[in-house]
Design a protein around this nucleic acid. Structure first.
Ligand SMILES: [Mn+2]
Ligand SMILES: [Mn+2]
Ligand SMILES: [Zn+2]
Ligand SMILES: [Zn+2]
Lengths: 163, 163
DNA sequence: GTCTTATTGAGAATAACTCTCTTTTAATTA
DNA sequence: TAATTAAAAGAGAGTTATTCTCAATAAGAC
């Protein structure tokens, strides 16, 4: 099911099936592979609030018996982020995290810059701002993320070494 | 001059002087060095809308006759970002960019995921959301950024290769 | 001026990610 | 169903932004 909201942003409201993923890939001249299907499956069934790095995803796939190479994983998550299927998150660590991009569960991140503790929060107006801004400039919206950098309560209490 | 807004977020409204920078460093047991002063100076006098990578900053310093090592540059921008003096931006490229963090000139970024073209835009409510959210969780706000990932008009027209 | 220790500079090390190249295979067509 | 073609996968080398290490320097305190 696809829904077009009042601002004309096409939002996918339900999960992908093999067929709907295939259709979106074929639209662009690309192919549906078992690897892509399996990777999307992982993200669609991931608990809310969980993010995976490429390495995380590799390990998870291994434990489930799927031998998908790191190269393919890197290529696939980037591809899906550029399609708007996944969100590419820059949290506090030195690598990217990915999660499914579901407008219904659209949320944002509050990050402690010292201990990297991350809190998720929802805010209805952020998506509206992203929608309005991208539309105004003629851009096709894929995702918008509000990232708050801050110092958490316990880190405020401790004395901070520079390095 | 420091101003406390209605939400209690301490916002620095004016430029740092050697003295005010020194004071903030000493508060944490750190030192004011010529290198830190020079680097902050660069950012404070940078044209609005310009962002510098570590490498950019290194080159700019060289042309101005300042021999500051890359190590020091990396350490300094990270330090100042964690103090809330600089904003650390994850734009579309594979390295970070930095700019001064001035609430008066607070703005956000709309990025084309295909050609990396970036548009800056302002939105008054974003800072309010960041303020409210961090306060609610007891976090000390440093910065908040809304990043919109999208496809620009000209990239929408072109046929997309996967890689 | 002396002392302590944070900071700098130089270069090595790390690691996330990309690239290259060969092999495999998805999708199309006959 | 078999043949064809080009996209995608896998393996591993390569790249590069960033961090780390350590000796030398210098900021700040007394
Ligand atoms: Mn999340
Ligand atoms: Mn900017
Ligand atoms: Zn913390
Ligand atoms: Zn573009």
């Amino acid at each position: 099911m696809m829904v077009i909201n009042h601002n004309n942003w096409v939002m996918r409201m339900s999960f992908y099936t093999a067929d709907s993923l295939k259709a979106e890939l074929h639209e662009r001249g690309w192919r549906l592979t078992p690897q892509r299907q399996i990777i999307l499956d992982i993200f669609q069934n991931l608990d809310a609030g969980k993010h995976l790095s490429a390495e995380d995803l590799y390990d998870l796939l291994q434990t489930e018996g799927h031998d998908i190479s790191l190269s393919t994983i890197y290529r696939t998550v980037k591809l899906m982020a550029r399609m708007g299927i996944l969100r590419e998150l820059e949290l506090a660590e030195d690598h990217k995290h990915y999660e499914i991009n579901q407008p219904y569960h659209h949320h944002h991140h509050l990050i402690c810059v010292r201990c990297n503790q991350t809190i998720e929060f929802k805010n209805e107006s952020v998506l509206k701002i992203g929608d309005k801004t991208s539309k105004k400039e003629g851009y096709h919206l894929l995702d918008c993320q509000l990232t708050i950098h801050a110092v958490c309560p316990s880190c405020q209490r401790s004395i901070l070494p520079v390095y």
